[in-house]
């Protein structure tokens, strides 16, 4: 039996099994809190798929991704709550607007690398944080935007926690599939080449400037999509959600998960998102322990990130490969 469990087969089977479990959850439970928590995981997984492309594969850092999530959330929230725009149109608008934001940010940032790109995107997040507060007529200021309607297509309304859970995870699975395909084909190879050696990529005929703007726009658009889904599934958004702190947490997820991997960051994303809600999954945890974890959440993720950088630079992905006994470092794809 055991000889059938080669890493290759495991690598193919695990995502399928994970999907199966994900979509079985609504049949096993009707715990609203659990659905809410797992929906947050799904939303973050969508953002992480895009950020893994940008940071993990193309090697371009962004400390502004929370702002793109915010652009998607406010666009969708405002259009559906205040303008009565159909949900699907509002979601597309949020995605596109965030993508355009990423494109516009990428153009002046093309000359920047490493720390300087980090600073520029960090500045962008701060600017957007101010705008989310100050653009009161659209964003509702510090009080946030209330009464955002649930997702609906025509007369069909997705207004249950289980429905939203399935919607978000359905989108997450599609995004992950499309992302994994990109990684395996020409644009993904160009991204990994850019990460490996920009000179080498240029000498291979890759228009690195154009590639950077494309990946930035795509990654920001995916973050906007997650934001739009967040707005309609939670019904209320406020500026503090899309702060720099969230951007840093997202980067921590990719670092802990491992650069050049999709599965690693997704796993790290699930772990770090679930951390403050550990009581939803593990019954019987004391209230004091949960409160302690929630108070120290940022410190824990920061500490883990430092540990990973020092002792396991390849992150969870590298650990997984070591356990699986393969050295398929360059195999790309869904590792």
């Amino acid at each position: 039996m055991a000889r059938f469990l080669t890493p290759r087969i495991l690598g193919r089977a695990l995502p399928v099994v994970a999907c199966g479990v994900l979509f079985l959850v609504p049949m096993l439970t009707d715990d609203r809190y659990l659905f809410k928590v797992l929906t947050f995981v799904g939303l973050n997984v969508i953002v992480i798929a895009g950020l893994a492309l940008l940071f993990g594969f193309a090697g371009q850092i962004s400390l502004g991704h929370a702002a793109f999530v915010g652009i998607g959330a406010y666009t969708c929230g405002y259009l559906t709550a205040a303008r009565g725009v159909p949900w699907i149109v509002a979601v597309i608008a949020g995605t596109v607007l965030a993508g355009v934001g990423g494109f516009l940010l990428a153009i002046p940032s093309l000359r920047l690398k490493g720390h300087y790109l980090a600073m520029a995107t960090l500045g962008f997040n701060e600017i957007m944080s101010v705008l989310f507060v100050e653009l009161r007529p659209v964003t509702g200021g510090n009080d946030g935007l209330r009464g955002i309607p649930f997702a609906s297509i025509g007369a069909w309304k997705i207004d249950t926690p289980a429905g939203n859970y399935l919607l978000v995870w359905g989108v997450a699975v599609v995004v992950l599939l499309l992302t994994a395909n990109i990684i395996r084909t020409r644009p993904g190879r160009a991204m990994r080449a850019l990460h490996g050696s920009e000179l080498g990529a240029l000498a291979s005929g890759v228009d690195t400037g154009r590639l950077k703007t494309e990946v930035f726009a795509l990654s920001a658009g995916i973050a906007g999509l997650a934001g739009a889904l967040y707005a309609s599934s939670v019904g209320f958004i406020s500026p503090s959600t899309f702060s720099l702190e969230f951007s840093v947490l997202l980067i921590a997820m990719v670092v802990i998960g491992g650069a050049g991997s999709l599965a690693g960051p997704v796993a790290a994303c699930a772990l770090l998102t679930l951390l403050p809600y550990a009581d939803a999954l593990i019954p019987g945890l004391s209230k004091e322990l949960i409160a302690l974890i929630q108070d120290w959440e940022a410190d824990i993720s920061g500490f883990v990130m430092i540990l990973v950088l020092l002792f396991a630079p390849g992150g969870l992905a590298a650990l997984g490969r070591r356990l699986g006994g393969t050295s398929a470092r360059g195999a790309g794809g869904v590792q």
Partner: peptide
């Protein structure tokens, strides 16, 4: 040499 070290 400007190879992409992580790639095969």
């Amino acid at each position: 040499t400007q190879l992409f070290e992580e790639m095969t």
